[in-house]
Structure formats: structure tokens, C-alpha cells
Nucleic acid binder design. Sequence first.
DNA 1: CAAAAATAATGAGCTTACTCATTTTTCTAT
DNA 2: ATAGAAAAATGAGTAAGCTCATTATTTTTG
Lengths: 213, 213
Amino acid sequence: MAVAALSRREQNKHDKRARITAAARALFAHKGFAATTTQEIADAAGVAAGTIFTYARTKDDLLILVFHDEMLDVVERARKRALQQPRLRDQAIAFFNEIADYHERDLPLARALMRQLSYVESTDQRALVSQLMRRLTGHLAKLIDAAKATGEVAASRPLTVAARTLFAVYFLHLNGLLNGYLDRAQFERALTADFTLVLAGLAPARAAKSKIQ
Amino acid sequence: MAVAALSRREQNKHDKRARITAAARALFAHKGFAATTTQEIADAAGVAAGTIFTYARTKDDLLILVFHDEMLDVVERARKRALQQPRLRDQAIAFFNEIADYHERDLPLARALMRQLSYVESTDQRALVSQLMRRLTGHLAKLIDAAKATGEVAASRPLTVAARTLFAVYFLHLNGLLNGYLDRAQFERALTADFTLVLAGLAPARAAKSKIQ
DNA sequence: CAAAAATAATGAGCTTACTCATTTTTCTAT
DNA sequence: ATAGAAAAATGAGTAAGCTCATTATTTTTG
């Protein structure tokens, strides 16, 4: 891990970043994103108000910083939950339901995150979001690939396109859920219906059914 | 049109709203959303600074107000452009390319709009966005329905699910385009690939091809 | 028509994210 | 070890979105 390789300066920066991130995480969870001021975060982290902005260009940046790691965990949990299902469609639904569960635990924060994902300003932020996306669609692609072995998906189908399309469906309906267009039951129904359609396109030609549920 | 039915108070409100919306539209187009202050809008509209906020709860609300009508026009143009194509897939691509063209004319503004669509705060705003969505997916559903006659789409396929799924794909990739994850060429390629997959799921069972482009 | 009630407009003031000139800390070279 | 350079931290200051107590306008009532 090359721990000793950190210079004093690097060590300080690392510690300070960790303190700021931890303080922000605690405050966001406790009083919500909008109600938390950058001054409070600075106080809790033991730094001056201006220091925040050498670690995050904007308050919104903090949101991405804080939740990047947490999201990676959620995606991993989602993968495990998906594997408990035998069929691809149910795997995909379980996968995204786990992520939706996570967001439903703190809706205002999830809304703030969603907003942020729709307006990425810095290159750093874009890199973090890209990493999350790749991780997520990578897991999906693996599930789809495995379904090729069971004959549920035709071998010729492109994995990345399929994974991306499933994610697109989820992304739209998560937006609906977070912005009050859908309740959770409607969200799940929409996900199921749309996934069924997409998976019909993935199925081998001879197995295609003429009726979509 | 029941023009005479407007009371003096309603007439005043209507006029003032129109002045504010027009001023905001001009200023956003001229110097961009972020660079335009609510004070400038108020001055240009000939009202006090506080008056803005009796017509729009936030500056972001103004964005929705201003562009709602414009968007309806764009969707109508998109519909006409789509009808010039014979096949459903190309119709869908043409449809969304028209909308993407519109957004590309003013990327910063489109980004601000996209951000706003991901964080709807007031009921009024939600109603405006819902109306737009319904209009858009309604046109798509009509195109899909027409494709049933040509045999491109199986008669049993659910229109709203299909339209919604196409929109989901577009929505994700527009996000990618506006946030710099995709350039325009990548956007169109992604749209084409994903639409091809979705339409494979819509196709009649016997016509399904084993290879997706 | 006058008084009272309801609605709308006003703009000074507040809050808070963010900036930037200055100061402090750390690193490097001799 | 010390001077000088580079990087980081600081916090007072700024700007702008938004609030709200007050004022003005319109409608309703008697």
C-alpha cells in the first residue's frame, strides 16, 4: 500500500479531506442537504470556511465526494441481491430495487444527488460519476452474459447496449419516483413492464413470445 | 375565447406575467441562465425585485415557465420530421434528433433545463413537465401504433410501455450529451443501437432477427 | 359611494455560497 | 540550518436569490 510514501503535505491534505467529507456526510444525514451550510461543515471539520472550497469547488461537489464510496457499496449489495434470483428479468428488477431502497431512506438527499447527476460541472466530478456508471452497467452486463448460458438471452446480443438500455429505463423511473410522479408501487410496475419489453428484444428469435405480459 | 371575462386584477396579473416571462426569455438567451440576475429580469419587466417571486417561486421556476411553450413547438416539429421517415426506428431517431438539435443551439440553457427536470419542486412545475412528457410520449405512441399496420410492430405490444422505454433511452443519452460524456456522434450511435434493441422486442415473433445490427 | 376585506406589489434586508488578497505551512536547494 | 519558492489555509468581503413587513390596488359589502 506504500503507506510511508505520503509526504507530510499529502498526509495533511488527506486527513483534512477525510474530516470535511465525514462532517458533511453527518450533517447532510442529520439536517438535510439544503439546510446544512458550508460554514457548519467547516466548523464541524475544524477548518476555515474557505478551506472547504479548496477540496470541493461547490457545495454540490461535496455531495458527490460524500456519496461516491457509499454508492459503490450499494451497487455491490444490489449485485448480491440480484444473484438470488434465477431469471434475468427478476435479477434486473432486484438489482434496481436495492438501489431504490437506498434512495428511499433519504429522499431529499437522493433528490439532491439526482439533480447533481444531471448537472456535472467539474472534470473530477465527471470522473467519479463515470466510475459509478461503469461499475453499475458492468454488473448488469455480467448478469446478461450469464443469462446467455441459460438460453434466456441470445448469444449474439451486445452486452453494453443491453445493460445501458436497462439502466436508462431505471434512471427515468427513479427520476419519476424522486420527483413525485410515481409512488414506489408504480415505479416497480413501470420497471417490470419496461424490462419485459427490453428483454423480449434480447431473447433468442425462436423463443420470442408474441404477447408481452 | 371569453376575453371580456377577465377582471381587472386578472388582466393585470396576466400582463405582468407575460412581461416577466418575455424579459426572462430574452435575457436567458442573450447572456445565459446563470449570468442573468433576477434583479435584471425585474428591471427589464418593469416590476420590483420581489414581484418576480409572486409569479415564480424560484429563479429555476422561471426556466420552466419560459420554455414550456417553446418546447411544445419543438415537439411538434419533431413529430413532423419523424413522419418523413418510412420505418419506425428511423422515425424515432429523427424525432429525438430534432429535439437534440434544439438543445444544442444553447447548451448551457439546455443543461439548466435538464437540471430543473431532475428536481421539480412545485406542483405547478410538475404539471407543466407532466404535460410536456405526455405530449411527447403521445406522439411516439402514435408512431408505434402506425407501425403496427405495416407489420413492423406486433399488434399485441403495449404502446405506452414502448413509448416510455424509447423516451427513457433518449433521456439518458441527452443527459450524456449535455454533460459532456458523449459528443453528438456518440449520442446518435447510442440512440440507434438502443432503439434497435427495443424495437427488436416490439417486433412480431416470427420476424425477430437473431442478430441485432 | 364609503368602508372594509382581499389580493398584489414593493424593496430593504437577510442568508449563504463562493472569492481572493493575505498569511501560514511545507518543501527544496545550497 | 536557512532562504527562498511553492502550496495550502484563512476569513473578511461580495453578490445574488429569496423573505417578509409594509404599502398600494382592486374587489366586495352595506
